[in-house]
Design a protein around this nucleic acid. Structure first.
Lengths: 284, 284
DNA sequence: TGAAGGAGCTTGTCCATACAGGTGACCGCA
DNA sequence: TGCGGTCACCTGTATGGACAAGCTCCTTCA
């Protein structure tokens, strides 16, 4: 849409520099804190963010078609490859659908507040406009049982840290976490305050530890005595159980946890697609 | 925009044809049933499949590093971009992790038998080496309630088809489906046999209808009288509920369903990553 | 012996180009 | 009027080149 600046031939060979210059010069982005805050995100991510915003704000309602790759490329002063990279993100989130030959279609306008991103409880709560709370009920050193050891990739009987934590949403108890931390991270966890709102964020800030990967197993169980007590439900009432194991970017397991959600307050959402995959997967 | 086909005699300008010719010459793929069985998968998919197989077969155990992109490219006679497209698929499946500067690491060797792919119950069962069964308990025309209408994107009161279906795994009842089909697909569904093993596959074969997208809401509920009866559990025992809506590739809703799973027999698995996204998402 | 530095490899980002294959709308003919 | 074919448009696939950023390991110096 915004006609690119007059054809400057020598600059055409440095599109990256050109557009960078543009954001600084023509676009009064300089007024924004782009330079001061962080190293400036990659182009494809910026484009994806712009599209995502346009969709969630209703500029493209459900069923509408997105501009073609060529148009988007021109509008953002990027190449088609970069635009494809951007829309691939929306594809993976299930916001848009794509078929060869046809324009892309908007499937949903609600941002994926779900598993697509690996979200901590606090982050997830904030995204929904709610306030999360936390309270450590007990914390004790112990040894890993066989199952836990397997998940944490340590020998059975290895020292670990067991933590029982109650999570609240707007003051209501909704989640009981039974977490087992690997020993190498235990001191950092013990140093946290009992009512720490977001363990994930604290560990990232204090230890530089990022939870990069996670595996979640979901099923339903009946509330036990302890569950019922803390979550304020009757014993035997249904709970949503999520057993998860989290690892660092290098694949080193950090924690494994048995999380039990009180139904009604929390619903998990997964969006799905035959084309979920980055750049295709349609075959067979 | 598309430059009219100029008279090009230079064979170097047709890398696709070149490599095809290579596979044809060196590997006499023509001798294989490639021509008879489907149109030959894209290169990047073939490479992804090879890597996936190597991982699940244990050639790369958990924690091992994958060959570099350059090595893979050379090994498969493809360009780096194509290899990147292939590994992006594994990234999205959570099989491998990736960090800039470091070799890719294997995170898991179990194929994602889960939500990453949109699988029908029968397909999913087969993948696990089990046999799926189905039985229609009731099927009746009716009108859409407000909630159903919203999910199917039809006006409230529009004609729909309600189907109650019991699914079995190796003969045991594990899933009770309450499905609402949009009217335009209702005749095809009614034409199906009552004990149809896979509705998804039949509809694809007979109608050319593909279930391309899905949205799933997961929570836990107590078994009602009917649930308890059909699933052979006590009333009030916990069930895993998945409310899902499925649409075609164009985004047209096909069905919406309330599925209740008997716990113990089925566990949902979701694998997760900060880098789940196609080609990045690490920022912020 | 231990720590700082650098070289080389590897992944991330981006561009330009070309062709294949599917979609959908327009147009002409019966 | 209705049907079928043509064609512009759009996405999928693939290559190749260039540079940036980050990780590892090895060397070198104190």
């Amino acid at each position: 849409m915004p006609a690119p600046p007059p054809p400057d031939d020598d600059a055409r060979r440095h599109p990256r520099s050109r557009s960078r210059a543009r954001t600084g010069a023509g676009g009064d982005r300089s007024g924004r804190s782009t330079a001061g805050r962080g190293p400036e995100p990659p182009r494809h991510e910026a484009i994806a963010a712009a599209l995502r915003r346009a969709i969630t704000e209703g500029r493209y309602p459900v069923g509408a078609t997105l501009p073609s790759e060529a148009e988007l490329a021109a509008a953002h002063g990027a190449s088609r490859g970069t635009v494809r990279q951007a829309v691939a993100a929306l594809l993976a989130e299930g916001l848009v659908g794509s078929r060869q030959g046809a324009r892309r279609v908007v499937l949903s306008t609600t941002p994926s507040q779900s598993f697509t991103e690996l979200r901590s409880f606090a982050q997830w709560a904030r995204a929904g406009g709610r306030t999360a709370g936390g309270l450590v009920l007990s914390s004790s050193r112990g040894t890993a049982r066989a199952e836990e050891a397997g998940l944490l990739q340590v020998p059975p009987g290895a020292p670990v840290l067991h933590v029982l934590r109650l999570r609240t949403l707007d003051g209501d108890p909704v989640l009981l976490e039974r977490t087992v931390y690997a020993e190498w991270i235990a001191p950092a966890v013990e140093a946290l305050p009992d009512d720490c709102e977001s363990v994930t964020e604290r560990l990232r800030r204090d230890e530089g530890l990022v939870f990069a990967h996670g595996e979640h197993h979901i099923d339903a169980v009946a509330a036990g005595t302890a569950d019922a007590d803390h979550l304020r439900v009757r014993r035997g009432s249904p709970l949503l159980r999520v057993r998860r194991t989290t690892t660092t970017a290098e694949g080193r397991p950090v924690e494994t946890s048995d999380d039990r959600y009180r139904p009604g307050s929390v619903v998990f959402t997964v969006r799905n697609s035959t084309q979920t995959n980055p750049l295709t997967r349609t075959h067979a």
